[in-house]
Amino acid sequence: MTSESNRQKELDRRERLLREREVELRLREMETNIHTTDAAFHQTVKHQPENSPKPWMKKVILGGKLFVLGVAALVAVKIASVLAGFMIVAALGWMSYKLFLESKKPNL
């Protein structure tokens, strides 16, 4: 009985060793497959729906928006400079009036 159990244990041990070697061999094969430089390269392409605008159209729209923004900035600067000019002229006129035209006699 002990010889049969010893034999069974020996078979189990050998089977376990064989499985461990197979696993190690598979792991080495997988590692070599991962590290190969001959991996297939697939070029990806972004999906474009059929009814979407073309890429050049997006650039034209973006350029138009930028142009409108530039024009709006120039108009805003022009309006601000005109208003600043009016305020400067008004301030100079008021100071001139106060200095030269206003009566220096106190009203008693």
Rank of each mutant, 00 (worst) to 15 (best):
S81W: 08
A40M: 14
F67S: 12
E22M: 03
I79Q: 02
H42G: 02
Q8P: 00
R14Q: 12
A76P: 01
R13C: 02
E102L: 10
M57C: 12
I34L: 14
V82C: 01
V77P: 00
V77H: 01
F100C: 04
K65C: 08
L62C: 14
L62S: 15
T2E: 14
N107R: 15
T36S: 09
K59Y: 01
L101Q: 07
L17D: 07
S52H: 11
T44E: 11
P49Q: 10
L108M: 10
K105Y: 04
E20T: 02
M1C: 08
E31T: 11
V23Y: 03
T37R: 02
N51C: 06
R7D: 15
R14M: 05
L101W: 01
G63K: 13
L66Q: 12
K78Y: 09
P106M: 12
F100P: 00
K58A: 07
S96K: 01
R16A: 13
L25N: 06
E10L: 11
I79F: 02
Q8G: 02
R21M: 05
A80M: 01
T2D: 13
M30C: 10
F67L: 14
I88Q: 12
L11Y: 02
N107V: 15
I34R: 07
R7I: 09
W56F: 06
E20N: 05
E24Q: 02
R28N: 04
N107M: 14
G64L: 10
V77N: 02
L92R: 03
A73D: 08
I88T: 15
A39M: 09
F67K: 11
A90H: 06
R14D: 12
Y97N: 11
K9F: 04
A91Y: 01
M57L: 14
F67A: 13
L92I: 06
W94V: 14
V71G: 03
G64I: 05
E10Q: 11
L27G: 10
N33W: 04
R7H: 09
R13N: 06
Y97L: 10
E20P: 03
I61H: 09
M95F: 14
R21A: 06
L11A: 08
K78F: 10
V45L: 13
L11H: 05
L69P: 00
A73M: 14
P106K: 15
L11S: 08
H42W: 06
N107K: 15
L69C: 14
L11Q: 11
R7K: 09
S5F: 00
V68D: 13
A80C: 01
R14G: 01
G85V: 00
A72I: 05
L11P: 04
G85R: 02
E50K: 15
E4A: 10
V45M: 12
E22L: 03
P53V: 05
N107S: 15
K78Q: 04
V71K: 06
V77G: 01
I88C: 12
E102K: 13
E31A: 13
R16P: 00
N33E: 10
K9Q: 10
K98H: 08
V89K: 12
Y97A: 07
A91M: 04
M57F: 15
I88L: 13
W56S: 09
S96R: 02
L99T: 11
Y97S: 05
R13G: 01
P49I: 02
N33R: 14
E24I: 00
E50D: 13
T44C: 11
E31G: 03
L92M: 09
E4G: 02
R13T: 08
V82D: 00
E4D: 07
G64E: 12
M30H: 06
H47A: 09
M30T: 09
V60H: 03
